[in-house]
Design a protein around this nucleic acid. Structure first.
Lengths: 207, 207
DNA sequence: GTCACTATTGACAATATTGTAGATAGTGAA
DNA sequence: TTCACTATCTACAATATTGTCAATAGTGAC
């Protein structure tokens, strides 16, 4: 290299973009999320996030105060978004498959990150699943066969809990448990369908 | 402080202990595991591990070559240990509760760490669960009521898969979903019992 | 004992990473 | 336009962290 000592050719002094604080923070949070690989928050590097967001790393510090501040903001945003996603998916008509899909495509990963927070964040968990259980129970009551024993609310709550932990678990360790299977997606969908049938069989057998 | 400038009082030159390589490596791996908090491998610091193990950090590098080498060794050890634990728990008489307990007490956490490895580690998963499914299926066949349709192997496999992902999921997100409940342990155990009953009801209804 | 081998260590080197400070440049308001 | 405000930048400072090296000290073999 003949010019290894030369300063870069003037670099055209990058034009500064000035965003609103909200836009800048959203931009940075998005970059941070996509910059988190499997490692989660612990693997976050301000430089990486800055490069992905197209800003300098002091800009991040300006908006979030510190690296910790950024991580806390990430957790907070994930938490608020998660509840609404969970409600919309588990409550949908195609509930089961949609729920498994949503967990697969991001919810599970974010939940793991959330678990890795030693902080005491507000817990949306309980109320969210209660809401879902109530809705589902209303369905069961409505469709109960006349003469059959009334549907058990405890059953409903347990089913909701089971679906949540199963969807989460399948999203995280399912793929590894299926390594070697020819068509993974098909195998997975078949399991979800079976799972749905199982729940129905059980509820029908009980009342 | 009057002696802030003084060198520490001779420090008694710590006596060196010389271990066999195997002992040293086990010691270090144990320390590394206990030093990993919720953050997982990404949060590992050689200094922390060294202090916990009671050695200097170059000793770690001597035995594992690099930080990455240590992490890889951790993954490898976890992987080999996990399969045997899973087999012993899911195969035990008190299978379901024991399985949930084992996942709660470490398996799930280690699995998450394993997931965070971008490397292509050998997958023990499939064969392990196949083994369990085969054993369970043999049980089902043995106890099948005469005249009833033969137990479906697909059912058995799915049940094993479901138990695995549910135990994993409950271990990780169960506690948060139960925040606010009076007696968490009791609530959890009740769920596991319900889950066991559900599986039985389903299998009985099917054949 | 003497010697080879190597596990262990303190001191140091080389980066990586977070955080600070001061200058600069968009932007909206007067 | 002028001005206040502040989002953004470059350059630097302060640690943190990993990795290197040469010296040292257990241990077993002879």
């Amino acid at each position: 290299m003949t010019d290894s000592k030369k300063k870069p050719p003037k670099a055209a002094k990058a034009k500064r973009v000035r965003r609103t604080p909200e836009d800048a923070q959203r931009l940075i949070l998005d970059a941070a999320e996509s910059s988190m690989g499997a490692e989660g928050p612990a693997g976050l590097r301000l430089q990486d996030v800055a490069k992905k967001a197209g800003v300098s790393h002091p800009t991040i510090l300006h908006h979030f105060g510190s690296r910790d501040g950024l991580v806390r903001a990430l957790h907070l945003r994930a938490l608020t978004e998660l509840s609404s996603i969970v409600v919309s998916k588990m409550g949908s008509a195609d509930g089961l498959h949609a729920t498994f899909k949503a967990y697969r495509e991001g919810i599970a990963q974010r939940m793991i990150w959330l678990m890795q927070s030693p902080e005491n964040l507000p817990r949306a968990g309980l109320t969210v699943f209660d809401k879902i259980a109530n809705a589902l129970h209303a369905e069961r009551v409505k469709h109960a066969r006349p003469g059959a024993p009334a549907p058990d609310m405890e059953d409903t709550r347990n089913v909701v809990h089971l679906v949540a932990i199963a969807a989460f678990g399948d999203a995280v360790i399912g793929p590894r448990m299926r390594t070697g299977v020819k068509d993974e997606a098909a195998s997975r969908d078949k399991f979800v369908t079976w799972f749905g049938g199982m729940i129905e069989t059980y509820l029908r057998a009980k009342g």
